[in-house]
């Protein structure tokens, strides 16, 4: 039976190329389908003032970061100091979303580590989290004044991510 050498060689080259490209990618990261779409509607209470309800239209109107966190989340603690620093610079409004947490624990956590948030919403049962497609806290969203989701970062924030992805709106359009 004939076997032209070119076919297996071609297949092999394609495979190697694919693997090479694959090495530059992270298979665990899932891109968000929300990019470019409006922030979902919600109705949640505030952590510090549980009797107050906040809805989407109360929140939007300027660029802001939505940071999904929880007191039981180890990685959230790692990024928190960066967020506190960012808040001090007053570049952008940062809203916290306390995800599937006990409010008492959350309040204590913020007291210990600092509260950088303009306000913190309580998403006790994770409904907003599900609408946002949260699958691993911490996650941070960049929202524009119209309420559109511009960017989502999964995992703890780093200076690089903040500079290059989240604060890009502060630079003039090129």
């Amino acid at each position: 039976m004939k076997a032209q050498p070119i076919i297996p060689i071609a297949i092999f080259i394609l495979l190697v190329a694919l693997f090479g490209i694959g090495l530059t990618k992270d298979p665990r990261l899932i891109p968000s389908p929300l990019i470019g779409k409006p922030l979902p509607e919600f109705e949640l209470s505030l952590l510090h003032h549980p009797e107050d309800i906040v809805e989407k239209h109360d929140l939007i109107g300027e660029y802001m970061l939505l940071n999904v966190w929880a007191s039981w989340c180890v990685a959230c603690a790692e990024e928190h100091s960066l967020i506190v620093d960012l808040a001090k610079q007053k570049i952008i409004k940062i809203v916290g979303i306390n995800y599937k947490d006990k409010s008492a624990d959350a309040l204590r956590w913020l007291e210990e580590k600092g509260d950088p948030y303009d306000s913190t919403l309580v998403d006790f049962d994770g409904e907003l989290g599900m609408d946002l497609g949260v699958y691993g806290v911490p996650e941070t969203f960049l929202i524009d004044p119209k309420g559109q989701v511009l960017y989502k970062h999964v995992g703890p924030l780093t200076l690089e991510v903040i500079e290059n992805n989240l604060l890009t709106f502060t630079r003039p359009e090129q």
Partner: peptide
């Protein structure tokens, strides 16, 4: 970062409040 994400995901899965 990858390790941290995995940690975060693991801690999420270990919990079962509800």
């Amino acid at each position: 970062m990858i390790r941290i994400v995995v940690l975060a995901l693991a801690s999420l899965s270990a919990l079962s409040i509800l």
